[in-house]
Structure formats: C-alpha cells, structure tokens
Design a protein around this nucleic acid. Structure first.
Lengths: 193, 193
DNA sequence: AAAGAAAGTCTAGCAGCGCTATACTTTCTA
DNA sequence: TAGAAAGTATAGCGCTGCTAGACTTTCTTT
C-alpha cells in the first residue's frame, strides 16, 4: 500500500495539469478570438480529449469561464498589491489606479469574463472566493480608517475604475483622454485623504 | 392613384406596429427571464409570425437587441433631462445621479443590453445614434465650462455611475450602502464646481 | 496471478440555437 | 383580368451545450 499513495498523487497531478491546460486554452482563444469562440468542442480539440472529459473537470461551460474569472481576480489582486507596495512616498491611489486600468486594458477578454459572466461567482457573501476578497482588499487598504467609511470609498474607487475600464473596453470612451481621466479620478480620491 | 398612398401608409403603420411589438416582447421576456431566453423562435411565437419575418425587420438577433438598447438610451436620456431640469436650486448632480441609478435598478435587463451587447451600437463617432448623444449630453451639461475639460468630468461621472450600477446589478455591491455611495460620489463631483 | 470492481474515456446522439433557400399565397399594377 | 411584386411559411443547415451508454484501462481483492 505504499505505491497507492504515489499513484494517487500522480493522478491528482495529471488532473490538475489537464485542468490548467483547459483554462490556458480558454484564455488564449478568448483573448485572440473572443469568448463566443470558446466552445466545448473547440477546447476538447485543443487539449486532445473528448468533450465529456471537460464536463468531468468543470460541470459546465460556465464552470470553465468561472474558473478563468477567479484566476483573473487572483492576478488582479497581485498586480494591485504590487502597485500599492511599490510606492512608499508619492500617491498610492495613483499607482493602484494605473495598475488596475493597465490590467483591464492588457487582458480585455479576461477582464470581460471577470465582470460580465460573473453571476456564478458569488461576492460579498460567506462563500466569496479568497481571490476576490484579496483583490478588493487592496483597494480597501488605500483608505485606512478615513472617516467612518473606508468601505464606501474603496467601493467608489472600484466603481470608477471599473466604469472607466468597461466604457473604454466597449469603445464608449475615446482612448485619447485616458491619461486626463486617470489624473482627475486620482485627484478626486486623494482630496478625501 | 389616390388610394395607393393610403395603402402604402397603412402598410408602413403595420410594419412599425409589428416592429414595436417585437421590441416590446423582447424587453418583456428579457426583464422576466433574462436575455438568454430571448430567442428568435420564442419571439416569433409571441408575435404569431414565422422567424423570417423577424429577419425582415432586423437583420439578426443582435439587430433586435441593438434596437432595444437604443430605445433604452432614449429613455435614459429623457429621465436624466427631467432630473436635471427639475432641480432649480439644490444640487443637479445629485438629482441626475439618483435618476441614473434608479433607471439602472428598475430595468436591469434593459440596462444590461445597453452596455453589454453593445459593440454593435457605435459611440463617440460620426454615426453614433442621436439617442446616445442626447443621454450623454445630459451629463455634459452638468459641468458647463469648468476648467478646460467638462468632457473629462462628464465621462468620469458617467464611469462612476456606470460602475456603481453594474457592480450593483451583478451583486458585487451590497445594496445596503447604496445611499451612502451616492452621497459620497455626489460630494466628490460637486467640490469640483 | 486471475477475477472482479472501479475509474477513465469515447462514440453517438438529443434538443435547441441563429439563420436562410425555396415555395407558396396574397396583394397590387397595368 | 393576367402578370408582377410583395408578404409569409415550411423545412432544413450547421452549429451549440450537454449526456447516456458502450468500451477500455487500471486498480483491488482473493
């Protein structure tokens, strides 16, 4: 019964590797050709397995997108943390805001799935994934004990950045005034400090 | 050749009536059961015509959604205008912000299609529909000649409101702090005055 | 080491989707 | 009143997400 464990571990590793392969393929296709081209058949082709294998890993197509979305929140959280910690003096709001918009602009499909498919990813509740809490936490840390409502300021900064990102992604905002927009939004949220 | 005109007019009326019937059905189904249940077959059932009739009116399913979206922008523009003009003294930003969020909250499916599907509705270009220009104009009029960039402030207010609406619609924001959020965003954008 | 249980995988197919070529019926024109 | 034109329906294509059942490989047990 010594080998049993090793075999089980190998199987687990294989499973996880395949899972990551699926997620990677989904992200690649989405970023290059849009989410409508991320079909279960297409993914099963890319990883050279039949469709039911995908359904064994994720219960549905939406399950795949949800996994990608969570991975996205993880990466966004890391990017914001890095931006926040990098700036010792100078304005951390500015650094974080720039990092947020840079993330959204450089992976539009990823950002899209994080916020538009997202009804299957719970939020602000007991079972909210840690990745999401962490990402929002970075915004929350920008307003330590200001007034009585750091949450409100963090939520509002998030809403502003999300609005800018989304209206830019969907071509509502001309990209030309983007720097100006960031400057003003940073100014608005820094006066409160 | 006197009757010819009358007949042509009747036909035009019939056409427009049917077009409105389609849009109305789409909105109703979307608001009650979500956009994924708005299928061409379902719509053709509701209006008791076959599918090709829908394609004669709108070239595609997306065409139907685009028509609904434009109707939405029209109504949003009217709501914002009403809110802006109603307040003589007092803060017009507050009134408009409240009206915007009220619109988004009371017709979530309509708001969703206006911003989510919308890649087929051009913006900020020569062929942007008048309904969209009008709606954005209401926000623009809140910042008459302030500094050199009223557009930037209007865009930023729009982004903030859109972010709040969207993060609320997708359950990212608890509805509990909503009043507080509006209060603070209004304050931020009023200091600039 | 052989037999049976379990896990893994594939084939094939269902119902539903957006969309359209073709045929038919009604309405208008001359 | 005959022929042109417009309006409408039927039927079907290729695609989708998803799954029941057969088959194969791997592990467990005696």
């Amino acid at each position: 019964m010594e080998t049993g464990n090793r075999i089980a571990e190998r199987k687990l590793r294989d499973r996880q590797a395949r899972r990551e392969q699926i997620i990677r393929a989904a992200r690649r296709i989405a970023e290059l050709e849009g989410w409508s081209n991320v079909t279960v058949r297409r993914l099963s082709d890319e990883i050279s397995y039949s469709q039911p294998v995908l359904y064994a890993h994720f219960g549905s197509r939406d399950g795949i997108l949800a996994a990608v979305a969570i991975e996205g929140f993880h990466e966004l959280g890391l990017a914001l943390e890095k931006a926040r910690k990098r700036v010792k003096r100078g304005n951390p709001v500015e650094s974080v805001a720039a990092a947020y918009l840079e993330f959204a602009a450089s992976s539009p499909a990823l950002y899209e799935v994080m916020f538009t498919l997202s009804l299957s990813v719970p939020f602000g509740e007991a079972d909210t994934p840690a990745e999401l809490r962490f990402a929002f936490g970075q915004l929350l840390d920008l307003f330590p004990g200001q007034g009585s409502k750091p949450e409100v300021l963090a939520e509002l900064l998030w809403a502003s950045l999300h609005g800018i990102a989304e209206l830019t992604r969907t071509k509502r905002f001309p990209r030309s005034r983007q720097k100006e927009r960031v400057r003003v939004v940073v100014q608005l949220f820094s006066f409160q400090g």
